[in-house]
Simulated assay, not measured.
Amino acid sequence: MARVAETDLYAPVKAFLEAQGFEVKAEVAGIDVMACGGDGTPPVIVELKAGFSLALLHQACERLALSDHVYVCVPRQTGRASWKALKANVRLCRRLGIGVMTVRLRDGLVEVHADPGPYAPRKAPRKTARLLRDFARLRGDPNTGGTRGQVMTPYRQDAVTIATHLSVSGASKGADVAGATGVPNATRVMADNHYGWFVRIRTGIYDLTDDGRAAITDRTPAQ
């Protein structure tokens, strides 16, 4: 597949803007595409690139000092991963007040994914509430910020606490485990058995599996 050049994007973008009544010129004072409507409004500025990069975003932010109507334009890629990456970049550009265009090179189709302008992302109260619950549930500060290893979530911390209790007390009733460990949903954690650490001996009574004992042993500091 031939490498895409920025110049491959120019003709489709020029035609797209001209169809909306703009006069379009390239490389005006270093700007890739500049379009004027002739009515005294600020020009439309489009920066062309073969792909998203931090340098492209820096450049577009600088152009905001010249006009409120600044777009970045990249080739439209195919595939699920490319679409996911595009959506993430569009969200970022919206927060920066930058518009986003793509060009489908096989037929020159230009698509506008976001227009420039002030943007306030919608809040997600349920996600915020869940985040606060996880913060409150997490006992102590068991993780290191930036880690790429096994993260200790509140759920996993509860499971470790329950497994540690069973390793000492042996098979126990769910209610007894909840009372002893302070994990109110202990029975549910053992019944769900997300990590394969627990086994139901009989109704309401659980014990550790070999995997559960190994998990606790792995977490026990050497003497």
Rank of each mutant, 00 (worst) to 15 (best):
P121A: 06
E62L: 13
S82N: 11
A81I: 08
V100T: 13
G79A: 03
A124E: 13
Y119C: 05
D158A: 15
D115Q: 14
D115Y: 14
R133D: 07
I162N: 01
T147N: 09
K123C: 06
P121T: 04
K123Y: 01
S172M: 09
L86D: 00
L138G: 00
A114H: 09
H69D: 11
A114S: 13
H69Y: 11
K123F: 05
C73L: 06
P142N: 00
A120Q: 15
G179W: 07
I98A: 02
R130K: 14
V103T: 04
F52C: 06
T161C: 11
A136D: 05
F52I: 09
A159K: 08
R80Q: 10
V46I: 13
G97E: 02
H165L: 15
R130W: 04
R94P: 01
L166V: 08
D158S: 14
T78L: 10
A136T: 08
P118V: 12
C93M: 13
G79V: 01
L105Y: 09
Q77W: 09
K127Y: 11
L48M: 14
I162G: 04
I162K: 05
D115A: 14
G99W: 04
R133H: 08
S67K: 08
V100K: 12
G79W: 01
G145L: 11
A124H: 15
T147P: 00
R95Q: 14
G97Y: 04
G149D: 02
S167V: 04
P121N: 10
Y71C: 04
A65W: 03
K87W: 04
R137V: 00
G79P: 03
A65F: 07
G108E: 01
G108V: 03
V100N: 10
I45F: 04
H165R: 14
S82F: 02
G140S: 01
W83H: 13
G145I: 10
V46N: 10
L86A: 04
G174T: 12
V110F: 06
A163F: 08
G97M: 07
A85V: 01
Q157P: 05
F52R: 09
V112R: 15
G99A: 02
P142L: 01
V44D: 01
A163W: 06
V72I: 15
S169V: 15
R139K: 12
L138F: 01
A124S: 15
K127D: 08
G149P: 00
W83A: 15
S82Y: 06
V103L: 07
K123D: 09
K127C: 05
A50F: 00
L105R: 15
H58N: 12
C93E: 02
T78Y: 09
A175M: 06
I98V: 15
V100C: 07
